[in-house]
């Protein structure tokens, strides 16, 4: 007579349960693969009128992979996999040496470690985006500072991007915000490229995006010119001049870099405490300055990612590959004629 503990144990290690759960997980993934994820309730009511949106929202299918139901099934599956792996493993060890088959065990163990890594990633991974213009700096998670020394963009003859690469310097000491590249003088340089992140202890830096921004060039009474990025201001005797935006923002995209159109810009002008919004064309004055034109400033989008789960994921990957090939290479011997 089996105790109820034994019955539960047998159920939890059964391959039938595993198969049912695998199919269930696949069905959840189908829902997540078809239904748009993470939209508002209104969105689902609009696109799936009647009972449809009710079911979607009640089951959490608007965010399948973090929904309670999916996580519950995944958790049962994880228990199933763990119990089954250790049961099988102990079974194998009680066999004589020559008869042991450890391929599936290594594979299943790898999957358990992979799942653990996945949970860790989901719960603790952090990603910070920083946008740097040449010479600008930003803080890194370990307190160091990163300075963008140079940035390089290459195109193929047909205009498609060929490479994006940032050259950065990293230093521990104090550096003023927007420190010029010169202060990063003797520091070692690193390159960050798409597909070639910069690995640091505890985090990695990725070349994530790349854009150009139009800045306005103003000239003061002495004939000195300087550039302002959107949102930046320059102090004047009576107040300040703030560059708000281009008059036609759609021209800020790549198409506008050819600089064919003289284009107006919108400024906020403060004089003696009174603020006015003014539209200025190139060549005209704004406060004490002359609006001289535009320059294109490249901005490097870097992602600083820390993911403590990934080393476990990598270990899991290695075991899975190892286990799976051991399993099938054994079986395939003898399948060839």
């Amino acid at each position: 007579m089996k105790s109820s503990f034994d019955k539960i144990y047998d159920a939890l290690r059964s391959i039938k349960l595993a198969s049912v759960l695998l199919v269930l997980l696949a069905l959840f993934a189908v829902a997540g693969g078809i239904l748009p994820q993470g939209k508002t309730a209104d969105f689902y009511q609009l696109h799936f009128p009647g009972a449809g949106s009710g079911i979607i929202l009640a089951l959490g299918l608007d965010h399948v992979f973090s929904s309670l139901l999916f996580l519950l099934v995944a958790a049962i599956f994880a228990v199933n996999l763990t119990v089954c792996t250790f049961h099988r493993l102990t079974g194998e060890f009680s066999k004589p040496r020559g008869k042991r088959r450890h391929g599936p065990d290594i594979l299943h163990l790898g999957l358990i470690i992979l799942m653990f890594g996945g949970i860790l990633t989901a719960r603790t991974r952090t990603e910070t985006l920083i946008n740097l213009r040449k010479g600008e700096s930003a803080d890194l998670p370990d307190g160091a500072k990163i300075v963008l020394v140079d940035l390089n963009y290459e195109q193929y003859p047909d205009g498609r991007p060929k490479s994006w690469e940032s050259t950065v310097a990293i230093h521990k000491g104090v550096a003023a915000q927007g420190a010029p590249a010169a202060t990063s003088g003797g520091l070692p340089r690193y390159h960050v490229k798409v597909n070639a992140p910069l690995r640091r202890k505890g985090y990695s830096i990725y070349q994530q995006s790349w854009h150009t921004e139009k800045q306005v060039v103003l000239k003061d009474a002495m004939g000195m010119s300087f550039a302002l990025e959107p949102g930046m201001r320059e102090a004047t005797k009576d107040g300040f001049v703030l560059f708000m935006a281009l008059d036609n923002p759609s021209l800020t995209t790549a198409a506008a870099t050819s600089d064919t159109l003289p284009q107006s810009a919108v400024f906020l002008l403060e004089e003696h405490g009174k603020r006015t919004v003014v539209k200025v064309a190139p060549g005209q004055g704004i406060g004490p300055f002359i609006f001289d034109g535009y320059i294109d400033q490249s901005i490097s989008g870097l992602a600083v990612v820390s993911d403590r789960g990934y080393p476990f994921v990598e270990a899991g990957f290695i075991l899975v590959i190892l286990g799976i090939f051991i399993t099938y290479i054994r079986k395939l011997k003898g399948m060839l004629a």
Binding site: Q37, G118, R125, N195, Q208, A303, V305, Y310
Partner: peptide, 13 residues
Amino acid sequence: IWAEKAWGVWWSW
């Protein structure tokens, strides 16, 4: 592995 190298995230659903 490629996704991790290119985007910094190994799985993104």
